[in-house]
Design a binder for these strands. Sequence first.
DNA 1: TATTGTTATACTCTATAACTATA
DNA 2: TATAGTTATAGAGTATAACAATA
Lengths: 160, 160
Amino acid sequence: MAQPSPARTGPAAADRARLAGDAVRRIMHVASAIRHHQDVEVADLGLTPAVARALHELDPDRPLPARDLAERLRCDRSNVTALVDRLEQAGLVERRPDPADRRQRTLVVTGDGRRVRERVHRALSDSRLLAGLTDTELATLRDLVWKISDGGCPERCGAE
Amino acid sequence: MAQPSPARTGPAAADRARLAGDAVRRIMHVASAIRHHQDVEVADLGLTPAVARALHELDPDRPLPARDLAERLRCDRSNVTALVDRLEQAGLVERRPDPADRRQRTLVVTGDGRRVRERVHRALSDSRLLAGLTDTELATLRDLVWKISDGGCPERCGAE
DNA sequence: TATTGTTATACTCTATAACTATA
DNA sequence: TATAGTTATAGAGTATAACAATA
């Protein structure tokens, strides 16, 4: 059982695997804590996490068809109906018929929706957990995470 | 409107806030992708994500009461019943009466459970998304995430 | 009285399949 | 035929409240 390449099976690779596994589990731990904070803040706005995320993915300046929102949320079209129902009931979004293709319903963010969406954005950007990092560490972290997130999406990941 | 302290409200603080918000959103993006991979791998073992996580939190060498598992999972006791039901049906965990306190049921990981838990651990440590990082970058990321995760838990976060 | 595990129940989130009205 | 939105439905996950057995 000769080891083909130290880079793939040697002690260095084992060290790296341990390190990477550790990093992954820690990232998920941190993400879970962040999510917890976000959910609480978003609940203060009277929104469930999924509804808030739907509002966040909408572009106030460029109305989208529901199909595109489903794509951005990476969920099935059928779910978007219920999410938009709740946004519409809250007066944050309007469904408008699209004259060009009468099958489509265009999702328009209202004035209220615009304001709430801004607050949702702040909630989803809350960085209290990063308060312990120096400016340099924060910049380094951002760069590393950025590097990972390129091409690291579940399915297709366009529309950035 | 004099600005009290540049460190808190000046342009540097604004830069940092932008940077931190960016980092947070990227972390959540990455975590979502990692979760997707984990869920797929864990499904290959015939487990749902929550059941897999429950098995993962159990200590094969130190049986726990259900109460403690709920605490580790940070969920209500009532949920643990259904999760352990499924683990028991799959033959991965056994409920044993505790002679010392007959209210309690001790959760014992079986031989099969031990083996499956090992595979779950590997699934939850899968680091393919970090493959693009150099060894140095990986170590830096691990350290930074580690620093954040200390004291960065939703509620209490002992029993590490 | 307080606690452990359980049950009953409800809500959120998500997926699949079938329907409708368009194209 | 294919697509956009919807509806119906089901399952997973999680929470609250109430209960029985035990402390």
